[in-house]
Amino acid sequence: MNAFKLWYHKLGSPPYFYVFAGYIQPWLWTIALLLAAVGLYGGLVLAPPDALQGDAFRIIFVHVPAAWMSLFVYGVMAVSAFVAVIWRPKMAEVLAMESAPIGAAFTLIALITGSLWGKPMWGTYWTWDARLTSELVLFFIYLGIIGLYHAFDDPRQGARAASFLAMIGAVNLPIVHYSVVWWNTLHQGTTVHYFGPSSIAPSMLWPLLLMTIAAKFYYGASLMGRSRVALLSLERGKDWVADEVRGDTAHG
């Protein structure tokens, strides 16, 4: 057995994952906060105001990372969900189900910041533009997955059912996106492109990239924290959990 496979099987075991997650979580937090601090300074202070949008463009430093993360988290969740449905390891179920609320949070942020950006740009908080509308549908899909997970009495059964829904959603998401784009052109909606890759100045780009990477590390940190709690709850009868609880009590 090669090293990767060994590592994969070790991480698949809940007690090992619990320790591993607890070990890397502070590191993920530190990196996320450091990157965010530098990124925010670069975005809010160093980057000059945009020629067209003035200082309103600074919303991109939270909007774009959140929008990217809303899809990235769905991708991670869909892969774990696929593994969870096919091979049924407990860890894949936990990772998929604990990713869903984080993804929903990022989608909500993308929606709120997007409409706050839209007000000075389009003159209204909400327009049925293709990107905002797709985000809204994505938010509903996340809510459906979370709702289905909690509708079952048995969390493992709920996780498998919700994982299957996440897979159906993953097939459907590109179709939703392209149908919304088509619908938007059909009705001559707002086809405003404030943001093409060519228009990004380097002074905007590096804070944006830092914020995006910070968001990824935040996701990692939050996922580790959530998974640890979920494992304690799922494995409540096991000896390692009892040991863990005793140790936690001893520490204070």
Binding site: V62, A66, L116
Partner: peptide, 13 residues
């Protein structure tokens, strides 16, 4: 517009 957007980002996370 800018500060509520940042507030939303940090409050939700």
């Amino acid at each position: 517009y800018v500060w509520p957007a940042y507030a939303a980002f940090f409050v939700i996370l």
